[in-house]
Design a protein around this nucleic acid. Sequence first.
DNA 1: TCGTCCGCTGGTCTTAGGACCTGCGGAGCA
DNA 2: TGCTCCGCAGGTCCTAAGACCAGCGGACGA
Lengths: 206, 206
Amino acid sequence: MTEPIRLLLVDDHPVVRQGLRAYLDLEPDLEVVGEADDGEQALARIAETAPDVVLLDLKMPGLDGQGVLERLADDPVRVLVLTSATDGERVPAAIEAGAAGFVYKDIDPDALAAAVRTIHAGQTLLSPSAMRGLMTGSSAPPEPTLTPRERQVLGLIARGQTNRQISRALGVSEKTVKTHVTNLLRRIDAADRTQAALWAVRHGIG
Amino acid sequence: MTEPIRLLLVDDHPVVRQGLRAYLDLEPDLEVVGEADDGEQALARIAETAPDVVLLDLKMPGLDGQGVLERLADDPVRVLVLTSATDGERVPAAIEAGAAGFVYKDIDPDALAAAVRTIHAGQTLLSPSAMRGLMTGSSAPPEPTLTPRERQVLGLIARGQTNRQISRALGVSEKTVKTHVTNLLRRIDAADRTQAALWAVRHGIG
DNA sequence: TCGTCCGCTGGTCTTAGGACCTGCGGAGCA
DNA sequence: TGCTCCGCAGGTCCTAAGACCAGCGGACGA
């Protein structure tokens, strides 16, 4: 097993830090090595703990996230910006200042862990549609829209049913079920039914 | 999007409530509408806020979790008992008194959110072997005994990984992974990896 | 020593699953 | 009318998954 990714959590709300720590520390390849509640403290902790990735809220009293980013210009640490829909307008400047990506604070824990790994691996977490959405001030990313039938099939997948079982349950051919499965996998960006089932559980379907 | 599931958190330790709230509130379909640190306060909050689901610690000063359950006999609210391995002997009585399920306090956030959704959907979170083990007063959950390796593989399945991906993550052959999968499927009585993943989620693995 | 469990790995074989091609009819809308 | 979406279903094809056969060495306990 390789060294865990070392994380610093920077947010002025203890509740948020606690919540983040509670589930990030459960990931075996992630390790929270410190917390900070403002920009100055963040810089001090970064110097002390040399984290790989900083999860950084932009909106903080005193030295804010943008200020931190500007002072980290020559530091190899990767910064993942934690943002909310109402803070979207700060993100482009943060990216300009060197942040490697951003996520919404309401991101689910799996996706946050994945985001951390992605930027730690040297990639960035930006998509033109996401940037565009932020700049127009639109709310959180929309959920994929499944057709009623796809949703139904997904619900049955999330109960562990095979295509054969689903076809019998719905009174259609197995071929039809396969078609719905193929379509819904593409919509929710899942590679297979197992991932689809997990997605369904996370989204309260089935 | 449907209405979020409204939650009340009941635990005498502020730290626990805070941590729970921090990550449950991050789930878009869940909303923490209140907290209470003992049974009396819990009943008052339930009356005020009409939550869908109560996360309830059994062991509290004054009116405890069991007392709350007994007074909620005619309330439609669903109760998810938060327990620890050392409190296991209280669970059967709590279930008898109307709790819809129980989870261990060290459950990971995904599994907890899934548990909440499951009981909100009207299901229960009980397995005969889990109940049997609890009734005999054993400490650890009496789950099917997976070997350490099987458990590890199951955890990765529960993240949606393929056998190939798992073999790379663990540094073993795909053949070895398949063997572990075959063995763990038999142990947990699952027909395929999708069912195994769902089982893992329900049991706080991965 | 022997037996069991564990983790590792090879082999063979079948089939469920999924991608991607196709097309039908119905509904709704410009 | 034409287009899109939806649900339904056929086809071909490949491969991941899983069952079941086998065996190795190490650790542990009777």
